[in-house]
């Protein structure tokens, strides 16, 4: 099962390696990880996407909680929440496909953030499904490369998980 885990940590050097070291040292898998500051500059938030059965996820959250620099661990599975990820896709379409690429970008509410004679760089934000769908659609028209930010997630206010 895939879980998105949000971890509030002290914003100090070395904390990222403590967290990533925990995953590598114990053989847990990290699918994506993103780090950023929070409203309190002394606190960072890490959003980690990982997979494992219930027992492994339980160990992961317990082990994260055990790290001295970790303030709070939230498994987003337990909450109603919003997840987003951004991807930058560089496509090099043939002349006849260019209009279609722009069209799909439009439909996905993406933006062209850079262009050259042969390529467009497109920014798409959304949940995983949207991003996957976009990539599937433009793939036949020639993706040169893409980079993904990894997921960020936030709990919804006042909404209980059914």
């Amino acid at each position: 099962m895939r879980h998105t885990i949000s971890v509030l940590v002290e914003n100090k050097f070395g904390v990222l390696s403590r967290v990533s070291g925990l995953f590598s040292g114990r053989g847990y898998n990290i699918e994506s990880l993103s780090v950023g500051e929070t409203i309190d500059p002394q606190v960072s938030v890490m959003t980690i996407v990982t997979t494992g059965d219930d027992q492994i996820i339980e160990q992961i959250t317990k082990q994260l909680n055990k790290l001295i620099d970790v303030i709070k661990v939230t498994d987003m599975k337990e909450l109603e929440h919003v997840e987003r990820e951004m991807v930058l896709v560089k496509v090099a379409p043939k002349q006849e496909d260019k209009a279609e690429v722009l069209n799909i970008t439009e439909i996905f509410r993406g933006r062209i953030v850079d262009s050259s004679q042969k390529t467009y760089t497109i920014e798409i934000t959304g949940d995983e499904k949207k991003i996957e769908a976009f990539i599937e659609l433009v793939k036949p028209m020639g993706i040169k490369e893409f980079v993904r930010t990894g997921k960020v997630a936030i709990a919804r206010e006042g909404v209980k998980k059914k």
Partner: peptide
């Protein structure tokens, strides 16, 4: 005392 010891 260590939750990680339990159910490991």
């Amino acid at each position: 005392i260590d939750p990680t010891s339990i159910r490991k």
